[in-house]
Structures are given as structure tokens and as C-alpha cells.
């Protein structure tokens, strides 16, 4: 009965200008542009991949990092299967803000098990020679948050992107519920306005 293709909703969060849209475009379209265009609201792209035997459709929600577009709120985060936190290794502030992005996400999305929710952290723009945030520092933050996987990436040079998204898909798939939570009620006729028929039936 289960659809052959699994759909995963993946949300990309992070400060404005860290390269969220570039990462998505590189991953989905194999393209990179040096020009910066702020995302207005959100962009949506999908990519189909195969993870082991399973066909997966990644529905990627690329969000606007600028605060004035943060009004999409709950609708945006609801039902996410994975969340990608992005910072720019060359800008300390973007790394320091990961905490608040993570908390904002957990607050708005309200996943059933926040501790086990599959995040992935990407330190982007490693192609530039102005690194401020060391790998060690980033790794230690990730470890402190329940061992979030960490990748250093470059959308420009296409470094580590396929690998990162594969881990994103795998970890999200691992979250799949085992138990079936679909359980309709049974009709309790005593609840119905018409008590008559219930009595009739009790008589037989």
C-alpha cells in the first residue's frame, strides 16, 4: 500500500546571505551564480534521488534568511522531515545564530521527539580564504546538540553537497514511523442523538 516514492520535506534555515539558495540550486540544478538575490518568502525545488532501494523525492523549502520574511511561521516548518542549518564559515555571526535558528525551528515545527529530530549543519563558502569559524568549533557545537552531522561545503565548487543531502535523506528516512497511527473510532450509538436505534439494537 505504501507509495513507492517517499516524500521528504526538507527545510533550509540560516542567516541571510550564507548561501541557502545557492546550495539548493547547486544540488538540484547543478548551477551556481555569484550574484546575490535575496529570497523573498521562500523557494521550493524538488529532487529525486535513490537511497538504497528506495526512491525519494526531496521537497526542499529554501527560506528567506532576512527577518522581514519570517512571517510564514508554522506553515513553513510544519511537517518537516529534516532541517538543514546553514552558516557561512567566514562570518562568525552566522554561526552564532545557529542556536536561535534551531530553537525557532523546534518551537514552530513542534516535532514529536525534538531531541531526535534530524538536523544537519552545513558550514558553507569554504572556497573563500577568509575562514573565521574553525571546523573544531563547529563540530563541538554539533556534538553538544545530540551529534548533529556536520559538513563543510561550497556551493560554488560543489564540495560535499551530494554527500550532505544524502545524509539528510538517510537520517530523515530513519525517522519513519514504525507504528501505524491511523485508528478511526468505532461508532458508539449511545453518542448519537438518536437513542432510539441504539435501544432497538440492544433489544436483539
Amino acid at each position: 500500500m505504501a507509495p513507492k516514492k517517499v516524500l521528504l520535506k526538507v527545510i533550509i534555515l540560516g542567516d541571510s546571505g550564507v548561501g541557502k539558495t545557492s546550495l539548493m540550486n547547486r544540488y538540484v540544478n547543478q548551477k551556481f551564480s555569484n550574484q546575490y538575490k535575496a529570497t523573498i518568502g521562500a523557494d521550493f525545488l524538488t529532487k529525486e534521488i535513490q537511497v538504497d532501494e528506495r526512491l525519494v523525492t526531496m521537497q526542499i523549502w529554501d527560506t528567506a534568511g532576512q527577518e522581514r520574511f519570517q512571517s510564514l511561521g508554522v506553515a513553513f516548518y510544519r511537517g518537516a522531515d529534516s532541517c538543514v542549518l546553514v552558516f557561512d564559515v567566514n562570518v562568525a555571526k552566522t554561526f552564532e545564530n545557529l542556536d536561535s535558528w534551531r530553537e525557532e525551528f523546534l518551537l514552530q515545527a513542534g516535532p514529536r521527539d525534538p531531541e531526535a529530530f534530524p538536523f544537519v549543519v552545513l558550514g558553507n563558502k569554504v572556497d573563500l580564504d577568509a575562514r573565521i569559524v574553525s571546523q573544531k568549533r563547529a563540530l563541538s557545537w554539533c556534538q553538544s546538540k545530540n551529534n548533529i552531522p556536520f559538513f563543510e561545503t561550497s556551493a560554488k565548487d560543489n564540495i560535499n553537497i551530494e554527500q550532505a543531502f544524502e545524509v539528510i535523506a538517510r537520517n530523515a528516512l530513519a525517522q519513519e514511523r514504525v507504528e501505524d497511527i491511523y485508528l478511526p473510532d468505532t461508532v458508539d450509538l449511545s453518542d448519537q442523538k438518536d437513542k432510539q436505534s441504539a435501544q432497538n439494537c440492544a433489544a436483539c
Binding site: K9, F44, T46
Partner: peptide
């Protein structure tokens, strides 16, 4: 959550981007 459920044209998965957009 913006996830496709059904489409008269079939292939709901092809609707993923549009579904997300409409949800938003």
C-alpha cells in the same frame, strides 16, 4: 505541511514544488 496527497492528473510527487508553494 505542503505535502502532496492527491492529484487528478496522477503523479502527486511531480507536484511537490507546487504543493509547497500553495501550502505557503
Amino acid at each position: 505541511a505542503g505535502k502532496p496527497v492527491f492529484s487528478t492528473a496522477g503523479g502527486e510527487a511531480d507536484l511537490s514544488s507546487l504543493s509547497a508553494l500553495i501550502g505557503a
